[in-house]
């Protein structure tokens, strides 16, 4: 397809795609786990601001 340099063009697109989508997936997974953690803590009865001691 991309002439004689396809071996350089395609990897550079693959690398960029993998890095950016990897970063996005990581951030989304982190968001999910943070949300769960927050929920778990709230269900355990921890208040966000420690005004109760």
């Amino acid at each position: 397809m991309f002439g004689e340099h396809a071996g350089f063009i395609i990897p550079s697109y693959i690398i960029s795609f993998c890095a950016i989508s990897g970063m996005a997936i990581f951030i989304m997974a982190q968001y999910k786990s943070r949300k769960q953690e927050l929920k778990r803590l709230e269900e355990a009865g921890v208040k966000r601001r420690a005004s109760n001691d």
Binding site: I20, I27, L38, V46, K47, R49, A50, N52
Partner: peptide
Amino acid sequence: IFFTLHMMAMRNEILNRRIRTMKMSAARK
């Protein structure tokens, strides 16, 4: 891409700090 990911990462970081504060207050209690 940058602004989207940046905002998402900032949201994570704020949640991170909330969890931290909550854990600390739980530990103190």
